[in-house]
Design a protein around this nucleic acid. Structure first.
Lengths: 163, 163
DNA sequence: GCGGTTTATTTCGCGTACGAAACTTCCTTG
DNA sequence: CAAGGAAGTTTCGTACGCGAAATAAACCGC
């Protein structure tokens, strides 16, 4: 451990990491809990809410939206199709692409779940003053850009899991 | 989308979320990449580094350390034991508990991997001024506490995945 | 010292999550 | 228009990750 004297930057850095991990995992947990009420999983809720907004998405578009690999989303859609929540339709213009849309059953469930999972955070961020919010954004962006620079050289996969 | 006029708090909030998600997933990616050089997975690296520091840990202690459920860690240790990286030893004082420690092979690999995965972040945070770091910590803590208050009523599971 | 509760770990079933390889369709270029 | 490459999706194998139930040992009160 470093010295504890109010200038303990390493300790602060660690605490910042802790906070980020906490916020992220808590977000996942909230999404999951919200989903469970409708007998869904976290990623499935994300899919349903995405499709509700946009109407119809190709598998790749959906993958980008929920930040997961195509091969992962294939499995998620398999299970949702099995449950009758969505259907796959092959596009007529480009027969390589699969369009995914909600069934009536899927749309009904989407309507039942009122809020976006993120809204808990929007609300939590709401207690900050506008200046604090912008400071937070500015500093986080600075750090993120630094990490990005540091790791950009070399290809990067695109994501992992639910929002 | 809301109006884009510099007072777009909802947009700022969303950007903050994006940044948090980016930093978290990037952290996982870096850990994974670091681990891959030693033919390990992310969680396995976390286990090895934990055991290197402490020497010997019960399964439950290890679970807390890497923020995962016991049932998850059982599987991780199974695979690592199969690879000869760690061994299980039943405690003599309390025969319910399993102590896990590195084999010589595991210890050698731990020595080969120089840095903690977190160090990339420590470095990224290093470009902030001390004031910025403390602002960041203060604001994040405020948000985290707010989320905590909002969700505390009701039991919470303890974690999910690698650091 | 016996029955009941608590604690530590494992087992089981399911759902992500990823990367590499296979497949199909589309597009380019000679 | 044929060959080759690129793009969209699926398949396969492996590793988490969780919660509920099972198992085993320790503890507690009487």
């Amino acid at each position: 451990m470093a010295a504890q004297n109010g200038k303990d930057l390493a300790g602060d850095a660690e605490a910042v990491l802790e906070a980020i991990i906490y916020l992220y995992t808590e977000g996942r947990r909230i999404t999951k809990e919200l989903a469970r009420k409708a007998e869904l999983t976290g990623p499935q809720l994300a899919v349903i809410k995405g499709l509700e907004q946009i109407g119809k998405l190709s598998l790749t578009e959906l993958s980008e939206r929920i930040r997961a690999q195509n091969s992962t989303v294939t499995g998620i859609i398999d299970r949702m199709e099995r449950e009758g929540l969505v259907v796959r339709e092959r596009s007529t213009e480009d027969r390589r692409v699969i369009q995914i849309r909600l069934t009536e059953k899927g749309a009904a469930i989407a309507r039942e779940i009122p809020v976006e999972p993120m809204e808990v955070f929007q609300e939590a961020l709401g207690i900050l003053s506008p200046a604090e919010t912008r400071d937070l954004l500015r500093i986080l962006t600075k750090v993120a850009n630094r990490v990005r620079e540091r790791t950009e050289p070399g290809p990067r996969p695109k994501g992992n899991q639910e929002p």
